[in-house]
Nucleic acid binder design. Structure first.
Length: 387
RNA sequence: GGUGGGGUGACCGAGUGGCUAAUGGUAGCAGACUGUAAAUCUGCCGGGCUUACGCCCUACGUAGGUUCGAAUCCUACCCCCACCA
């Protein structure tokens, strides 16, 4: 049966479970690599599979612009299009309301985007975002939301939160219509589920009202927390997660959108989050920053010149098991694409493995202790000494 | 041998009297990146001193000169390039 979540163990607020989706299962907690344009930048489907990732993201806005959802649909959907046969989730374009603020105007009916590709105006509404995602055909579609910056004043945060709730109703209606075969591109009704997103900026009462509104429009097979890691201080994010955790239904997965760095994953898991996604793994990988158990390292740095050490001796990824730090640095110096790919693979594997480790620790009851020690070591940010 | 052009910081290359320790690039060094407008962006980049404002030294082929002041003007020399003998 699709869209089920089995909770297997808890450790305080932390949870271990298994999410079942049409294209496979996802043991949680889990990190989802981001493949905005239908590609986890620089990595093949086989590369991503090799990192152990069980589910990846795509993006409504970007895939609508290129190649267009009808082309993806005609080619058999995102899975066939990309060659990735495990579960997928598509973001609705709500994040672009935030990240492309300069290129859009928002109204109650939806958002007008001035395409960053060719300047044409593109309209995204809750209905359109839902239709596009239906055509793309990921296992999970996200509701179209209004993301506001982390420092947003209360008035704006409230407006975004209320609007996101109203839009959620429209997304749900449209999604049900499509699932009943009343859209232009009928598919198996149980092939996609829709997840809502909690907004409300940094304001406790708004967040709680958002959650209340989401639950009132349920039931849901999963619930996302959005609008975090968008400029607010880290303690604020932790506080909001702690606020929401006891109010969230236990029986569905919680997805913290856009988060995060390694420490953010552990902090999130400790506060009851099951799913994460973040571009940092691949972006930092391309930019030459690699995560390590002891912090992070600048792969381009002169300190790695000539080093025969593996990037991360504790890691089992392709980069760490086949080449040296000195060689990785060389790849960045000569600007070969292999360097971008290998460090991206490492960073993705690092987060995927962190999820796997956390899961194992939750299951065997040692999560809290392990997490504290892990964070302590990671925060030291020390770069291991050269031989 | 003659004529013309040219020698600028690790490299390329602007700059024809003061606003020049010297525009831009490159290389080098450091940093940032959180539901991807990002293989991107930012900072440093002659040496020394100073918490800082700032100060001192060295520097535009070499050596002299003109000038209050020279990478910039004059003289000689060295070297490179092109063409002509």
């Amino acid at each position: 049966m699709s869209f089920t979540f089995a909770l297997e163990a808890t450790a305080g607020a932390a949870r271990a479970g298994t999410l079942t989706l049409p294209h496979g299962t996802v043991p949680t907690p889990a990190f989802m690599p981001v493949g905005t344009h239908g590609v986890v930048r620089g990595l093949s489907a086989a590369d991503v599979r090799g990192t152990g990732a069980r589910i990846i993201l795509g993006n409504t806005y970007h895939l609508h612009l290129r190649p267009g959802e009808s082309i993806v649909g005609d080619m058999g959907g995102l899975h066939r299009f990309t060659g990735w046969d495990r579960p997928m989730l598509t973001d609705s374009g709500g994040f672009q309301v935030f990240s492309l603020e300069q290129l859009r105007t928002i109204s109650e009916s939806g958002v007008e985007f001035r395409s960053h590709v060719d300047g044409t105006w593109r309209r995204l509404t809750p209905e359109r975002a839902t239709e596009i995602q239906w055509d793309l055909g990921a296992d999970i579609a996200m509701a179209f939301d209004h993301v506001v910056p982390g420092g947003a004043p209360r008035e704006l945060a409230e407006e975004g939160m209320e609007r996101t709730l109203r839009w959620l109703g429209r997304c749900r209606e449209e999604h049900e219509r499509l699932a009943e075969g009343r859209g232009p591109r009928p598919r198996a009704p149980a092939s996609q589920t829709l997840w809502p997103i909690i907004q409300g900026g940094t304001y406790d009462d708004l967040r709680l009202r958002s959650l209340e509104g989401v639950l009132a429009r349920g039931p849901w097979t999963g619930i996302a927390i959005g609008g975090l890691s968008v400029g607010e201080p880290k303690p604020v994010m932790h506080r909001l997660l702690e606020l929401l955790e006891p109010e969230l239904p236990r029986e569905v997965p919680r997805y913290l959108m856009g988060v995060g760095f390694p420490a953010d994953l552990l902090e999130g898991i400790a506060r009851g989050v099951d799913l994460f996604d973040c571009v940092a793994a691949t972006r930092n990988g391309r930019h030459g920053t690699a995560w390590l158990p002891t912090g992070r390292i600048n792969v381009r740095g002169a300190a790695l010149k000539g080093s025969t050490e593996p990037l991360d001796p504790e890691c089992d990824c392709e980069a760490c098991t086949t080449v040296s730090r000195g060689y990785l640095r060389h790849l960045f110096v000569v600007e070969d694409m292999l360097g971008l790919r290998l460090v991206s693979i490492h960073n993705v594997r690092f987060l995927v493995r962190l999820g796997e480790q956390a899961r194992a620790r939750i299951l065997d009851g040692t999560f809290d202790h392990w997490r504290r020690e892990w964070l302590e070591r990671h925060r030291s940010r020390a770069v291991p000494a050269e031989p």
